[in-house]
Design a protein around this nucleic acid. Structure first.
Length: 277
DNA sequence: AGTCAAACCTGGGCGC
DNA sequence: TGCGCCCAGGTTTGAC
């Protein structure tokens, strides 16, 4: 579920609550979610019990919780993961796999229906142990992501535009919803090879990437099914979607029927009139 | 280089 | 009501 705007919203909701808080106890209900050290809740507990949160950051769709003893807890929410900051007397919902008891009578709970989420514990100077994190492309909302950078990386590639957007090594943080919205905004067919984009299309692509992700953050994410922030609050960007999930409905620009095809193994909605190959 | 299917899971919606 | 099938905000792996 969560893409860059959702993960950023979770970060913003949790960070002020966690900074300076101490982890006093850890409950692991599903050890297999711990990828480093693999399935090892004892090591996890030993290394982080008693430590305090000193920083929380986002990189792509990863959340990084920096602890005061040099370890970093890295969490990826994948499809249905949630991180919730709840009072410790709140009922524990089904699918709650990990609970961090804090020294303020609250808990940080990891909830994940599909159990695809990933949890790592690595030393601060060894984040490269997590290959997905190590190989991440630039942050699309940072100053590193220039038009020139995009032009250079697109050059000579035959990869489809949608496939390019979903590839975390190219750009960090974009998933299926924002990819479709970006392509519609830029007027680019999802199957167009990126090496064939004109100068004007590349500029529109670059603008659309920044605009759609910024809008997603502004509306605090897209809540279609599972996504909520650290306080359990839904976002509202689903009210502003133009094409994602709207196959058979009408294009807000031209009135054509929105089509659904499969690209990169994912459902892809686009307007065949506004997005030509 | 790039594309594809399968794998990891649970649950909701649909047709019959 | 129930069963079986398809679908779902992600990523990795191994085969062409």
């Amino acid at each position: 579920m969560p893409e860059l705007p959702e993960v950023e919203t979770v970060l913003r909701s949790l960070k002020p609550k966690l900074l300076g808080k101490k982890i006093v106890e850890i409950t692991v209900n599903l050890p297999k979610l711990i990828k480093i050290p693999p399935g090892d809740e004892t090591t996890l507990r030993k290394n982080i019990t008693g430590s305090k949160f000193v920083d929380v950051k986002r990189r792509g769709k990863y959340l990084l919780f920096y602890l005061d003893n040099g370890w970093v807890l890295v969490i990826h929410l994948r499809m249905t993961g949630r991180l919730l900051y709840l009072k410790n007397n709140q009922p524990v919902e089904k699918h709650t796999h990990l609970i961090f008891d804090l020294n303020d009578e609250y808990q940080l709970r990891f909830h994940d229906v599909r159990q695809f989420g990933l949890i790592y514990l690595v030393p601060q100077d060894s984040l490269d142990l997590i290959s997905g994190l190590k190989n991440l492309g630039p942050e699309p909302l940072s100053s590193d992501f220039t038009l020139g950078y995009l032009q250079n990386t697109l050059e000579g590639k035959r990869k489809k535009a949608k496939t390019f957007l979903l590839d975390q090594r190219e750009i960090a943080g974009i998933g299926n919803i924002y990819a479709d919205e970006i392509l519609f905004r830029a007027g680019i067919h999802p199957e167009k090879p990126v090496g064939e984009l004109s100068t004007g299309e590349i500029e529109a692509f670059w603008q659309a990437i920044k605009e759609k992700l910024s809008q997603g953050i502004k509306y605090r994410g897209t809540s279609i099914k599972d996504y909520v922030d650290g306080d359990g609050r839904s976002g509202s960007f689903q009210e502003h979607l133009k094409v994602y999930g709207k196959a058979g409905e009408y294009c807000p620009n031209c009135g054509c029927a929105i089509e659904k095809i499969i690209v990169a193994g994912r459902s892809t909605c686009f307007c065949p009139h506004c997005q030509r190959k």
